[in-house]
Design a protein around this nucleic acid. Structure first.
Lengths: 226, 226
DNA sequence: TATGCTGAAAATATCTACATTTTCGCTAAA
DNA sequence: TTTAGCGAAAATGTAGATATTTTCAGCATA
């Protein structure tokens, strides 16, 4: 989603921080984002701040009503289900194309990332786990998707991913600190890798769909507790 | 991509005009968008202008380099092929889901829009043709896609569509004013409608893919003439 | 004579501060 | 209990100041 800039300007820096804070839950869904508060928190003028907020409106993480300011986008069970369904279907399509189009480099990439992901528990402390596991988990799935050889499908995938990241964060906190959950995921990843390397499209696609939808009930529970 | 606002502010108005101008080719691909010129042309200050440009950067219609201003995004044969390939694959997925999930209302919508599209030539003058045909053509395809019952897949579809609109505009000008091309399209739409109503997923999906990819050679020719 | 380098000047992007318009919350009266 | 009015707060837009980039003329060198 971001291009490498030699020196990011203030608007881009604000965009990154604000996006991170929204995903991390620093601001509650539906909360009003007052300019005076944002100006103080990020030490910026209104110009760059409005630019950052505009970008986030485009990504559906913030909503804007003319003359009435900006708010953090709402979260709902309906959106959760629609979003994860869309992600699962798109990821299935990308996977099918990747199996059809991917070469040896693609396979090697998957094996490498799967290995790194499987070994993550042995190497790092509990505190670093969340960030490290998430990073390697994303890298694993990105390696699979990369084989579809379609930059624009990958863009669409990233776009849906960003929209889901607030929900995903709820799931991450529940999963990463549970040894059983992590082990279950490790087995799913291994089976998925096997099916992909065997180029078994129907099996791999079904497994991928199930793998992506499995967090939904867990996230639902967390959301209903609030 | 846009939500209905009771009173759009200047930034949104500027965004709409600028986007329209870029798609219509008022600015050449790669052209530098100087603030002084934009301010004069749209009679606005730099604040709203920067906001509008930020939105367009998010949609990949404009590129920005920090401290070096904004430029109209480049166009290339490579992007054309990647974009149309992604669109065709995504539309195929959406169609498959729509056939699986769509009900009677969905079928009725398709038949209605197909009818309106088929009759467009008899009703309107040559000058209005481009706008009217394009509007009804989009409505026809949107009616098909709507059956997938996934707002977020439809959002992704719209997003890819917006990115392709500059290329599509080149094709439209070549097609709408050719009686044979219009007739060929009419037959494709009729056959597609039949396959969909028969719920013949493999046939419909293949036809949709071919239908969406058919403009590519024509656009390539137009682009190479420049 | 052609080519590459240096430095100043112009142009441009970016940011902060201020003015204007609109909205929201509170109080009081019907 | 509802509604009208008042004041504070917030959002939007404009203008000007600052820093960066780009351009180009002049000079040295091959």
């Amino acid at each position: 989603m971001t291009s490498a800039s030699p020196r990011p300007n203030l608007a881009i820096a604000a965009y990154r921080q604000l996006k991170r804070d929204i995903i991390r839950g620093v601001y509650a869904p539906g909360e009003k984002l007052r300019m005076s508060h944002l100006k103080e928190r990020y030490a910026l003028g209104v110009g760059p701040m409005r630019e950052a907020l505009s970008q986030l409106v485009g990504e559906r993480l913030v909503t804007a009503v003319s003359q009435r300011g900006y708010r953090v986008a709402e979260m709902s069970i309906e959106e959760l289900e629609s979003l994860y369904d869309a992600r699962a279907e798109l990821e299935g399509l990308v996977l099918e194309l990747a199996i059809a189009r991917g070469g040896d480099d693609w396979e090697a990439g998957i094996v490498a990332k799967a290995h790194a992901l499987a070994k993550v528990a042995e190497v790092h402390s509990a505190e670093d786990m969340l960030d490290v596991w998430d990073t390697r988990h994303q890298a694993f799935h990105s390696a699979i998707a990369a084989g579809c050889d379609s930059p624009h499908l990958l863009q669409a995938r990233t776009w849906l991913f960003d929209q889901a990241e607030r929900y995903r964060h709820l799931w991450l906190c529940q999963t990463v600190f549970s040894a059983e959950a992590l082990d279950a995921k490790r087995q799913e990843h291994a089976a998925l890798t096997d099916a992909i390397l065997a180029r078994d499209t129907p099996t791999a696609r079904a497994m991928m769909r199930e793998h992506l939808m499995s967090p939904v009930p867990i996230i639902k529970e967390v959301m209903q507790q609030r």
